[in-house]
Nucleic acid binder design. Sequence first.
DNA 1: TCTGGGGTCCTAGGACCC
DNA 2: TCTGGGGTCCTAGGACCC
Length: 410
Amino acid sequence: MSPRTILHLDMNAFFASVEQQANPELRGRPIAVIGSGGRTVITTASYEARKLGVKTGMAVWEAKRCCPEITLVVGDNRKYTWTSSRIVEMMKEYTPLVEVFSIDEAFLDLTASLGIFGTPERVAYLLKARIRHTFGLLCSIGIAPNKLLAKLASDMHKPDGLTIIRPEDVSRVMEHLPVGELCGIGRKMERHLNLMSIYTCGELGRCDVTRLSKKFGIIGTRLKEMGQGLDNSPVAPLEAEDEVKSVGHSMTLRQDISRREDILKYLLQLCEMVGRRARRYGVSGRTVTLHIRFADFYSGAGRQETLKRAVNLSNDIYRAAVAILDTLELPQPVRQLGVKLSNLEYQGGQLPLFPDERKKHEMVCAMDEVNNRFGDFTVTFGSLLAAEEKGSRVISPAWRPEGIRNVQVL
DNA sequence: TCTGGGGTCCTAGGACCC
DNA sequence: TCTGGGGTCCTAGGACCC
């Protein structure tokens, strides 16, 4: 395989920076973006807040403890999705091979475009300058022969960094790099490797592959390659991406609940969110999963059930979810509920065959249409929730601005 | 008022069929 | 009397990512 030139772009403190741009009073100050619910965490902290110890995933009270003057902003995903889409459009001017990895990260395969734009550094500087001028936002860029190394490189200098790993640098960079720095090796995997006396990528790359395969199974080979800085995976633009395999929503409730009728209300809301997203993208699914987290945070219950036929009507999903609920023991009040539809089938807008089915389908589509125009839960089943519980605004960096993974509500 | 929400992939074990 | 093996589908749970 001939050498490739891959660029990874990572927006710095994306949600927080977008908010600071939208509101000049927030610039230069410690702020953090949080979710809208009663029980939420820090989604993104500005660099000013990070300096004081505020981190993603922290409870709000914890963030306030390290930084009493912090300004908390409830996230607005329309802003982030809009900005992200504009940045992706900009990136597509340099190559059609843009893989949107998350709302604030993307890979570009520049191999074929360097004839037009010159060096990859030049593309990086152009992108950085344009993103800064247009949106007032900073990003870190990594350039390397593959995605694994490009992502590693973009992480090396933050914020506003530009790091290049050339083919001749790879073995030097990997030699003393801790294995946990690689995307794909998390805390548990790192601990297992350390127990095998493998601490650095250099050691991982030299490790006997049978030893790795014995311990880690099918990914043993892949691990050794990662240690050597090898990665053949292509940059996959949206059209080339695998089909989405599941659609789900979950919510942590404002308060723990125990009464069945309360649980059912939230369950119906979740099934409506899942069903509507599935219908919007023309998928239905045969497997419905219900998951519950109990009041103690650590314990939970859940089950999945595969139906005879694929469904995407909220009521069908709801019926399956309730059937599962009725098989579960609930030893504690419920903190969090989740519903997922998987085993997906892509039907591409086919209408059901039988008249009564079709009528139901048409009614649901009409409801969806109203909700799409006027906001979630404008028209909905009678038993849905009071105004203050409407359409919990999901804030998650894992969104994509396009396609079914756009979880944007409203 | 302690601890969010969206996904993917892999493993292991059981049921069932040929 | 005892004991097969491959394949598929399904479920539960864990690790990892942003």
